[in-house]
Amino acid sequence: MTKHPLKDHSLTDHSLSNQPRPAVAVLGLGSMGQALAGAFLDAGHPTTIWNRSDGKGDGLVARGAVRAATPGQAARAAEVVVVCVVDYDAARAVLDQAADDLPGRLLVNLTSDTPERAREAAAWAEALGVDYLDGAVMVPAPMIGTPEALIFHSGTRSAYEKYEPTLKALGGRTAYVGEDHGLAAVHDLAVLDFFWMAMHGLVHGFALAATEGVRAAALAPYVKVLADLLADMVDGTAADLDSGKFPGDLDNLTVEAANVRHIVRAAEHRGLDAAALRGVLTAADRSIALGHGADNWTSIVEGIRDPA
């Protein structure tokens, strides 16, 4: 059995050339951090864990993880250091404690934030001479380590390629999206923009039906029909946006905006908050005013891009 560096009570740099899997350290043991560490253990990686407060990670230790006393100690025990905490300020506070121990290792930041913060973190790592990948986890903790789990990574391509098998222990749909360290956050924000707007629409539609006594469970089968239709529309919408052409031969924005308008009217008449739908309608009306009334729904993007 391969010795784990801390099990051997050595806190100095070590060679991992004889190990079947690179040693990893996970800094931060919230529900996501624990899931990440658990996936590494399941994949056979010697795993060191650290958390700011006591009382977390006992189950991981029982499965073979080693608890470090400090972030620096955890980093010294690993070839790949993963940090996943509440925000970038918290991540920086943790990583500052390990700054002297990070050079020569790959730092993977799976803390969600903006592209700007990701690039700032990358500049900090570069100043230390540390290979850095920024990342975004797109699934809940229970899905980590499954073939369906999607995680974005961006940053040093050579580092990603070297450790791709290690990173894919966290999710079968792990994706590298480019050298710009901010691109994982861009993908994160864009996909979640769609997700949360869709979730709002789902709940809002159920709430609208409920005002007339229709139970959500009764409406659900019909919502699924439209959800399947939406999934089928993704590629075509993307193609229209990338080409900048919005053919309105099958539908047009003027007609679709009228449909949204009567939903807004019905929702407000029933005392529901229709602010999000009003935002959709405002963008559509703005696009129509810009001359896109005869174009398809995707031309609403012009009203989104020009909110003035």
Rank of each mutant, 00 (worst) to 15 (best):
G236M: 12
A294V: 09
A284Y: 05
A274S: 03
Y176V: 05
V94S: 07
L133N: 07
L170F: 02
G172K: 13
L6Y: 05
S17R: 13
G279H: 02
A238Q: 11
M138H: 08
P20G: 01
S243W: 09
E161C: 06
P103W: 10
L107T: 08
F194D: 13
A207S: 15
V108I: 03
G279R: 08
G182D: 03
V301W: 10
G57Q: 06
D232E: 14
D285V: 03
S299N: 08
G38V: 13
P71K: 07
A23D: 01
P46E: 05
G172Q: 11
A169G: 00
A185S: 07
V203E: 12
V225M: 13
A136E: 06
T237E: 09
L110T: 03
V80K: 03
A238G: 14
G171L: 15
S112Y: 04
L202Q: 09
L229P: 02
V82Y: 02
E116W: 09
V280T: 12
G38Y: 11
V137N: 05
H4N: 05
L230V: 10
D113K: 10
M32W: 04
V225K: 08
R119C: 00
P46V: 00
L167N: 05
L11I: 15
M143S: 15
G145S: 00
H45F: 02
D96C: 09
S31K: 15
D295K: 06
T298W: 11
A258T: 12
R305G: 08
L167Q: 01
R92E: 12
A98E: 00
A239W: 09
D42V: 11
A267Q: 13
M32H: 04
P20I: 04
G248E: 00
H4M: 09
R265C: 13
N259A: 14
S158M: 08
G104Q: 03
A90F: 00
A43T: 03
M32D: 03
A118V: 01
F40A: 01
N18E: 13
M233S: 15
A239I: 01
L106R: 09
F194R: 10
G236E: 07
A275P: 03
E79K: 04
T2L: 07
A257D: 07
L102N: 01
R265G: 14
G145K: 06
S17F: 12
E116Y: 06
D240Q: 15
